[in-house]
Write a protein that binds this DNA or RNA. Structure first.
Lengths: 206, 206, 206, 206
DNA sequence: TATGAATGAGTATTCATTCAT
DNA sequence: CATGAATGAATACTCATTCAT
């Protein structure tokens, strides 16, 4: 290997952090937030404990970084899918589906998220990050609803509360299904959710 | 002290178990599922560690027993409130409010519930209990919806999925509010939820 | 063993603490302040690590307790020996000898004391305890000197400074000899010290 | 950069060693003998860990080298001051003052020295160096005393023991004051020490 | 020469569980 | 029944040292 240049070095560091975070994600999904060790992460990342702590100064640091990554992923997914469409109805539908698809594609995703939720009451920093990003998710929905209201396709609802209700519903539908796939058919549930949302948003008198 | 008779003994045992479970509930709400010790429970219950382990054979046992109690409480609350009314609309509304009121009256309730959720992926027994009782909650809603459909006040929706969507929404609305009271006004949110549910369930006056 | 009564229990606790402190003393004299582990103490005391931490809440606690004991021992020794005599000269001589005899009887004594001294600059609590008790040792000497001045057998010296000089000299003589027995004959050194002290304190013009 | 010539290389190496030793001295005085890391030294010296270990093969090596430097400093100071005077009395006084001035000028000096003393019982090499150089310090005093005896200004005392007593006293006076400046006025103490020494050494019948 | 990434042995502390009293 | 002393397994974090670059 050639000697690394500064930018290559920084790149390698970023790579390591991603590698460690990924390992943490896998380990947490297998063992839960409170039942894994630094050793688990290290082994999973193909490093030694010391190596891991070279890039993150504590176990907690890894977790916080992971939490941010988690929300970034879901947000990106939402944006990517909703930006494909132009009409508010279709964009809203795309957002709902984004939440559901995440559950299908990443079996551990909501598992880890709930693990973090459980830390909120005892962990100021986790609470802060969670709140910030939960709001951002809702904001995406709010924007679409306001768009729909402005363009006359949606009723004059309270955009904030409606968005929160929608996110709460869809997210928890995804969570419960993650816990137990036999509870319901997730695709049918997605449709039910969309129908309920539209029934509320769309003008009855067409 | 005279030796207790069998029935008195059983009664005392039940008393002790309740006392210990209550202590566990308080301790978990203060410290989180993974950050409390048997000593915490013991002191909170006014017993010694050894005393606590007389009535439950392990820390895990206490937790499992507590989880059952938690769901029993919310189920009772739902039944009590919904049975006051006769029409499906009013009963459904009462159920929604029951979830919300629980969040307002018992600040630690959903906190502890999420703590348990976080154990599901790694804890077969917790998963089983959770599934069983989550289903029972949904069943309450299903019954009311089917009632409404039968009596013609609700549309011909898929009762199971609709119930799951409703429970998911309302429960998560309660959870997020428990985590952060400033996210929204919980009473307004309750109304928004009810409106959305009704918009979907009620015949549009065709 | 019969069930322990409260007073017997307290006695047993005191016994354990002494046992642990003694073990710490032995381990420190063998390995030095910074090179021993809780395991060492535990094994030396015939307990498990957990058992040791049942009586002291941390390693540091054991050390602090030991430091106090150390000074108590030397102070007792001084008092015992000096109280045997009536005249200031003889009492002062007895105090000097007490420091020296401590070095001869307890080979690890000054070793451990210097270990503690080394912690002073970085350890507020060690500094405090050290200062308090070092002053008390000097006070014993001050009293005798003032006695001697009052009764006319000693010159009008500055009692405080003289006492500090005496304690500094005798203690360091004991320390250096503890480090290296071949440096000098400790008994001859004791006499030299006493002669030097008396040359300064006694009236020349008898 | 051109490759360095051998002598330039040796010079650079010496420079680096001094630079590292100085850094070690500063770090130890701030953190104590057992609470600093190679990283601390490296950063303080403006090098990396690897760089430091280029010039010393281990952390211990740095410390040993430092210990030698420490004693060399005090010895130089003593020689410099005592060589200014001709009469034994004045030279002895100059030596005493040299110990005291060192404490005043170099706040960390005796701190680090005691740190080393604490290593003596567990560290053969530290013990050896200490003994050697402690003896050399005493030798300086012995020479002056023997001078004084030979020239008739001092009594016929046991020069070795007297010198050890003097060094023990003055050094410990400096040490205790380093630990706690409020214990006494160091200049007054110096005078007291000198008076005590002279009272013993000088013929009474002048 | 010099760097700093990586290692891994070493350690204090926590805590569920056991059991003698 | 009840206590709490004692155990010991588990684990996060530190840091001297090595070595590839």
């Amino acid at each position: 290997m050639p000697r690394l240049k500064p930018e290559a070095r920084a790149e390698k560091e970023q790579l390591r952090k991603t590698q460690i975070t990924q390992a943490a994600y896998e380990v947490i999904s297998a063992k839960g937030y409170n039942n894994f060790t630094l050793d688990d992460i290290a082994k999973n990342a193909g490093l030694s404990k010391g190596g891991v702590l070279h890039y993150f100064k504590s176990k907690e640091d890894i977790l916080l970084y992971l939490l941010e990554q988690i929300y970034i992923i879901i947000k990106k997914n939402i944006n990517k899918r909703s930006s494909k469409y132009r009409t508010p109805e279709r964009r809203l539908r795309a957002i709902v589906i984004a939440f559901i698809v995440t559950a299908k594609r990443h079996p551990a995703f909501y598992t880890v998220l709930v693990d973090f939720w459980a830390q909120i009451p005892i962990h100021e920093r986790v609470k802060y990050i969670n709140t910030q990003i939960y709001k951002q998710l809702c904001d995406e929905v709010i924007k679409v609803i306001e768009d729909g209201i402005a363009s006359g396709v949606f009723k004059q609802v309270h955009a904030d509360n409606t968005a929160h209700a929608i996110v709460a519903m869809v997210m928890n539908v995804a969570i419960q299904w993650t816990f137990n796939h036999e509870l319901y058919n997730i695709d049918h549930m997605a449709k039910t959710c969309i129908k309920m949302i539209m029934a509320y948003l769309e003008e009855k008198t067409k």
